[in-house]
Design a protein around this nucleic acid. Sequence first.
DNA 1: CTTGCCGTAACATCTTCTGTTGCAGCCAGG
DNA 2: CCTGGCTGCAACAGAAGATGTTACGGCAAG
Lengths: 142, 142
Amino acid sequence: MAANSRLTIATHVLAWLALAQRRGQEVLTSDQVAASVNTNPVIVRRSLGDLRRAGLVTVRHGAGAGWSLARAPEEITLRQVYEAVGAQPPFGLHHTEPNLECPVGRGIRPALSAAYGRVEQAMRRELAATSIADVLRQTLRS
Amino acid sequence: MAANSRLTIATHVLAWLALAQRRGQEVLTSDQVAASVNTNPVIVRRSLGDLRRAGLVTVRHGAGAGWSLARAPEEITLRQVYEAVGAQPPFGLHHTEPNLECPVGRGIRPALSAAYGRVEQAMRRELAATSIADVLRQTLRS
DNA sequence: CTTGCCGTAACATCTTCTGTTGCAGCCAGG
DNA sequence: CCTGGCTGCAACAGAAGATGTTACGGCAAG
């Protein structure tokens, strides 16, 4: 499978909403967002649905509908986006249960889970250090 | 795709080699290793091939062939294993090029690459803090 | 030379992700 | 009240990657 691009899509969407808001555009439709991401509006709606459930964006239904940020871009970190999109952790355990007759097979899964948990905590800490405002600032610089 | 288990397989293999070595068993065949991981010997050989290219294990061909660690278990970190198995980074960029007419679409890829690079560095730092000896010790504790 | 194991290619299967279509639900505005 | 535009969601096709399996050539110790 191709690399997981959900965090990328969601971050792109949020950055675009932030820029539109700054320019005075209150709400954007999923079609307008999809035009920037260059993908299907349903993909964008799926991503925005995740972000809505996490409380990062709000949606207005009916005529004149659309999306807007639920809080300031400085208040949204990539860690929140990462958790909102529910990306799976980078490492998985064995597909098939290891041989429990073997001392390594018996005890390695909790050992690895602990190590992988520490790695994911490190990832989360690093993701929390960047906000949507940071991403947008860096984006407009180029 | 199922979660990526290459790091898990490779670490299991190395821990098993380390334990066998400590017990006086100099070399193990891929069949013996596969019996502990509970998978096909070819999977194990593929993994061991990665580790050999990275200089972490050595192989003996011909009759009486088999594998052994190329250095002490304390000297092998999960970071080295991670780099040996060539796992892809946790986040990918857009599948299709974003709309370059849009200021966000134009500049977001380098901005995200930089942020993702920092995250992967954090992962590597954390992986470097655990060695095969640590994993084996934790494994045998349960 | 025989035998056991490595190295690798080819292939089947499974899973996940992306992208697409279709349709019901909702609500501002006329 | 009704229309139109957009959301929400289910269903499905296609692509990509990973695992698992079989098969076969190559190598070296005995």
